[in-house]
Amino acid sequence: MIGIGFVESVLAGAVAAGTVFLLASLGETYAERAGVLNLGMEGMMIMGAAVSYIFTNALGHGAALLTVLLVGLLMGLLHAFFTVSLKLNQVVVGLAITILGLGLSGLMASSEIRGRIILALNPEATRAVLASQEAPKLPLIPIAGLKDIPVIGPMFFNHNFLVYLSLLLSFVMWFLLFRTRFGLNLRSCGENPSMADTLGVNVYLMRYVSMAVCGMLGCLAGAYLFIGYQPFWVEGMTQGRGFISLALVILATWNPLRAVLGAYLFGGVEALQFRLQVLGIAAQLPYFLLMLPYAVTIVTLTMLSLESVRKRVGVPAALGVPYSRE
């Protein structure tokens, strides 16, 4: 029963499920590299899902994705305003943003309010659209020629454009972070902000920029979860995926390219557990596999509290510390 078809199906599922984690952890990597711990990822993600749901039904995919980016930008800047400008505790602000996102998304997407938003944007919306809890999914864009390559083809080249975009972004963001002056400045804000400041880097601006990127990618991850993966709205549908991406950033040691591997590994667990179940392999395994992403999260977070581990994996030294100019 385990043949090439099985492998192809699992790997294609891994990429489809893993792209949520990838987009979110790319954003989080930038925020943390600049020294801002963003625990608001879960809230940003669910807001992205809710906005993509409502705006796709009102105006279509293009306008929905633009709105998602805008909302992400605002949420990122809001976080930065509290943590960078007001220098509040990043953990508290992040959790507040998560709670805000979970509540606001539920409110926005409730039938009453979402109906008003859709009607305001598109007075011709039908009753069926107003009542629907789904939205049209992003079209698949198979890449001719490449999609028929065994294993690699279905894995990478038979998805929607957000999957391709996320892969492209991880290369671009890796390049920016490690091969350009901008990236060096950004990383220096996370390692030693006062030194960066004396060298003429605007630490506040850098942190604002990285939080803006983080917010946009976090919301985009939520939008992917909805219109790119499984377009059905339920309150709290992200189910902790934002927090899992946080652990992933650490697992990938704040490196956008390693985040690709980590994201597909976590996506692979999600895809694999159901394929193993129906194969009858390890019928009692589901409990274990379902727990795995959360267990990995806890273990990485615990390990990170050890000073020696922190040094070895290269935690941004000023991560979580608000910077104030003396």
Partner: peptide
């Protein structure tokens, strides 16, 4: 007949993978 357990009442993502596995695998 094959059964896939998702251990959740509301998780569209998990339900999706479970359904896809039943179609593609079983």
């Amino acid at each position: 007949a094959f059964v896939n357990w998702i251990f959740a009442w509301f998780d569209p993502g998990k339900a999706r993978e479970a359904a896809v596995a039943l179609i593609e695998q079983s």
